[in-house]
Amino acid sequence: MAPSTAVTSAAGGGTAAFPPLSSQGHGHGGGGGVTVNGVSKLYASADGEPSWALLNVSLDVRPGEFLCAIGPSGCGKTTLLNMMAGFIQPTRGALLFNGAPIAGPGPGQGVVFQDYALFPWLTAQRNVEFGLQMRGVGKAERRDRARKSLDMVGLLAAADRYPFELSGGMRQRVAVARALVNEPRILLMDEPFAAVDALTRVTLQTELLRIWQEIGFTVFFITHNIEESVFLGDRIVVMASRPGRIEAIIDNPLPRPRNRGEAAFGALYARVNDAFHRQGA
């Protein structure tokens, strides 16, 4: 069996051990890369006419990087994420995860949605345990893993509370914990902070960066917020619509932690903003 990976928990100040769930290298301890080769996706529109959600998109998501994607509604961002997650297959082209074709969802690909997608009748801990239960993990082990994952996002004290008892920010932390408990190599995030207030959003951004830096997985993060992409991303993919395609890929050289008030931050924001609006967003 592969060795355990130790993760420092900011909430509890201790060290949480996450032994791998399988022997296939899905656990923490290194980010997973995704290669997108000439991918296109064709859908039928409301009037029955075919429409390209994505057309001839190629992209390398580097292992361990934090890659942000921005673009207007309908540019295919979510379609691309869903293909990386294995939820849907491309019409043309291929996607590889760590060099292997993506044939479907797997524990190496964690997904966090905008709307939390929590079961209202389950406690925070039981929500985090759910995926492990579906995979046949024993009760004691999944309880231990869920509590360590909740501790990592600062919600161990709320383990027995139901979603209706939690704020929007706390619910999204539960959603992140639920994804992390499966020890993904890549975390796919579809506008995860769009539904929370501005102050909570900044807090969640900082917490996500802390966890990413501690564990070392890859992140593909969709957002409509240019400032958020500049604060979080190692690179920023700017997408265009009709058909969905990549307009630009912008490197972010700003050192971490980043200061939104610095001139360099504003200059990069302006560059991304220019690319965003150049394609008619």
Rank of each mutant, 00 (worst) to 15 (best):
V57D: 06
N56Q: 09
A44Y: 00
N56L: 02
S73H: 12
S40L: 11
G32S: 09
N56D: 15
S73W: 11
G71L: 06
T35W: 12
S45E: 10
R62D: 09
S58M: 03
G74R: 00
S40H: 01
G13P: 10
S9I: 01
P63R: 11
F18A: 04
S73C: 13
L54P: 06
P19R: 01
V57W: 00
S9H: 11
V7E: 02
P50M: 01
F66G: 02
Y43S: 04
G76N: 06
A16G: 00
G14Y: 05
V61H: 07
H26G: 14
H28Y: 15
E49D: 11
S51M: 11
S58H: 00
G27C: 14
Y43H: 11
P72H: 02
A53G: 04
N37S: 13
T78F: 07
H26Y: 14
V39G: 00
L67V: 14
E65S: 15
G48T: 02
P50T: 06
K77C: 08
A46T: 14
T8R: 15
D60P: 06
Q24I: 08
P50V: 01
G32H: 02
G27S: 15
T15C: 06
A16F: 04
P50Q: 07
L42C: 11
G76Q: 11
G48V: 05
W52S: 04
A10R: 14
G29S: 12
K77L: 06
L42P: 08
L54I: 01
G32T: 08
L21C: 07
P63K: 03
G74A: 12
A69P: 03
P63G: 06
D60V: 13
S9T: 11
T8Q: 12
V61Y: 00
V57I: 01
V39C: 03
W52T: 01
G25Q: 14
V61S: 02
